[in-house]
Each structure stands twice: as C-alpha cells, then as structure tokens.
Design a protein around this nucleic acid. Structure first.
Length: 153
DNA sequence: GCCAACGTTGGC
DNA sequence: GCCAACGTTGGC
C-alpha cells in the first residue's frame, strides 16, 4: 500500500502547530468541501505525512509536520445543531462528512514561507498549493515534493 | 480591508 | 441542466 503525503491548511489564529503540539492529536473537524473530504475519506491512511500549513498568517507557510492518526470516521460536528459545522442534510445513518485525526510530529526548525515555496515552483513541478486560485484546505503532495520542501528547512 | 477565484445554492 | 447570486478562502 502506497504511503501518501499531504498538505493541510489551518489558520494559526484558529488552530496553530503549537496548538497541535499542546493537544497531541486533534480531530480535523469542519472540512465542508467535497474534494478535501474525498482525500480524507478515500485516500488517507494512518501514518501518512502531513505538512501543516499556516494560512491567513503573516507570513503564510509550512510550520510543522503531522501524521494521520487512525482511520477516517464521520465528523461529529455535522450532527450537532449547536456547531458552526452542523449540516442538517446529514445524518448518522448516512453521514456526509468524514475526517481524520492529526497527530503532532514536530515543528519545523523555521517556517518555510509561501514566498520561498514560490521561488522553487519550477523544481517542485505541478504543486497544488501554487495553482492559481487554489483554495483547497487538504491537498496531496508528491513524495519528491515532500522531500524537496523538507530539504529547504 | 480588498478582491480574485471558485464552490454551492436555488430558481427556472 | 443552466447559470446568476451569494458566500468563503486566503494572499496581499
């Protein structure tokens, strides 16, 4: 079974790499985009590597590494009328949204900024993060891209 | 705060 | 099924 690599965005004011370090493992609730869900539901395996990206930050960039912690399961917030992520069209019998837990692995020695990543666009090849207008919060990363990015650290 | 990009919704 | 309106993302 091929191991996969990912990049997942989080706004550090909401949930940062330091928050992940503090709690150890965190259910990645609230993803309400089908493409992102499909990656989590269909392709993520326990132990997959995750680049933890700080979006809407100054500056934005890759802040740390996490691991997929366990198998995908139904996002409980979709059934909670009190939650911002409540989805009245979903039900426990037929859940619409799946998530995985992320486990903290380590912070990078330094932030690898979006600006710096852009400078390596040619070497990285087709990288989802750099595609024009990309807003996906969960995206695949090739093993070669993973290695290349971490060599910048 | 602005705004381009783009996903979703809902009327028809 | 089309597509205009609307909401969100996220860099700047």
């Amino acid at each position: 079974m091929a191991k996969h690599y990912w990049l997942m965005k989080s706004e550090p004011e909401e949930f940062s790499i330091d928050d992940l370090q503090r709690v150890g493992s965190e259910p990645w609730s609230g993803v309400r985009n089908y493409q992102a869900r499909n990656f989590m539901r269909d392709e993520m395996k326990p132990g997959d590597g995750v680049l933890f990206y700080h979006s809407n930050a100054t500056p934005p960039g890759i802040a740390g590494i996490a691991r997929v912690d366990g198998e995908p399961y139904a996002d409980p917030t979709q059934f909670d009328p009190e939650s911002d992520y409540f989805d009245p069209k979903s039900s426990p019998e037929n859940p619409r949204w799946q998530l995985v837990n992320l486990r903290f692995e380590r912070k990078l020695k330094r932030l690898i900024t979006l600006d710096e990543i852009k400078q390596h666009a040619e070497a990285l090849g087709d990288f989802a993060l750099l595609r024009r207008g990309n807003r996906l919060s969960v995206m695949p990363v090739e093993k070669a891209q993973w290695n290349y990015l971490l060599n910048l650290e």
